Computed example of a mutant assay.
Amino acid sequence: MVYNEIGKTGMRVSNLGFGASSLGGVFHDIREAEGIKAVHTAVENGINFIDVSPYYGHLKAETVLGKALVDIQRDKYYLSTKVGRYGKDGKNTWDYSAKRVTDSVYESMERLHIDYIDLINVHDVEFADLHQIVDETLPALVKLREEGVVKHVGITDLQPENLKWVIEHVPAGTVESVLCFCHYCLNDELLNEYFDFFEQNNIGVINASPFSMGLLSKRGAPAWHPAPDSLKEACAKAAAYCEEKGYPIEKLAVQYSCSNNSHIATTLFSSANPANVLKNIDYVNAPMDEQLVEDVQKIIGDHMRVRWANT
């Protein structure tokens, strides 16, 4: 496992991070005991960065993760959670007000059984009024940082242009990291256009969804995936090609997203299955087939970087 610093935070994290969304049954139902074991397996095998949100499973992911964390020494991991995006009774809700995000931090700490949060993120800023994020949400989190309740502050979004806008409109040092998903993977390298900006502003980069929410998998994208059919078909062809070569596209995808990119501190994957956790760790620690990367990206061809609707 390789360890990199997130920006200038001092947090040196594993290049493969544990995304806890699966603990909330986001993708399919889970067995709680197996999910807890998946967290333990990740930490025992070198993963030291865990990301979660109250939105995942509408509090379930944080609740299950909290049960796992009580058995892990606090200095063995860095924990990231989020504010702003929630859910209740099966419905998504959003609230980026100063009061709500402040209360949310304390509620998350209670569910997670911790007394501070290493990194607090504003979740999916695209769903908010960006001016509210700048004028109200982030100042509330900075106040918590000054009080030591949280150690570092970040923002997340599918759209990197929103992340850039927010950083440009807040005082330097307000935002310390960004989390962006589906834009540094085999079929999309859009983040390449933003790395210099983030680096110039001392912003650490967390990458997520190396499988592009299922596009880069043998099973293929789920029915709800917002990508256009043409992109789904191109990725399915790439997956079939990898299968013919005896090299699962999932292996190539996670290797590519975790490959030696000095701009990215960690890439998040999610699984509530301990065996899958070990498999992905093995993938990352194995050498990547560079020629296969080239072949796969040729197959995807003109569909590289194709954007889809907000999620």
Rank of each mutant, 00 (worst) to 15 (best):
V2K: 13
E5D: 13
I6C: 01
G7E: 01
G10M: 05
M11E: 05
V13R: 00
S14G: 11
L16V: 12
S22W: 02
I30D: 00
H40D: 11
T41E: 06
N45Q: 10
G46Y: 04
G46E: 03
V52F: 09
K60Q: 15
A61R: 03
T63W: 03
T63Y: 06
L69D: 01
D71C: 13
R74H: 11
D75N: 15
Y77H: 08
T81P: 07
T81I: 10
G84T: 05
G87M: 09
K91F: 12
S97T: 15
A98N: 04
D103V: 11
V105Y: 04
Y116P: 10
H123S: 08
E126D: 10
A128E: 04
D129T: 09
L130Y: 05
D135A: 15
E136C: 13
L138S: 03
P139V: 09
V142P: 06
G148T: 07
G148A: 07
V150G: 01
I155F: 00
D157M: 02
D157Q: 00
Q159G: 00
Q159C: 06
P160T: 01
E161L: 03
L163Y: 00
V166I: 12
E168H: 05
H169A: 10
P171Q: 07
A172E: 15
T174C: 07
E176K: 09
C182G: 11
C185K: 03
C185P: 03
L186I: 07
E193Q: 13
F197I: 09
Q200F: 09
G214M: 03
L216W: 04
S217Y: 04
A221L: 04
W224A: 06
H225M: 07
P226F: 05
A227R: 00
S230F: 12
E233T: 14
Y241F: 14
E243K: 13
V254D: 03
V254S: 02
V254F: 01
S257N: 05
N261E: 12
I264E: 01
T267A: 08
F269A: 09
F269Y: 08
F269C: 09
S270M: 06
S271V: 08
V277Y: 04
V277A: 06
V277F: 07
K279C: 11
V284H: 00
M288C: 12
E294W: 09
D302Q: 13
M304P: 11
T311I: 14
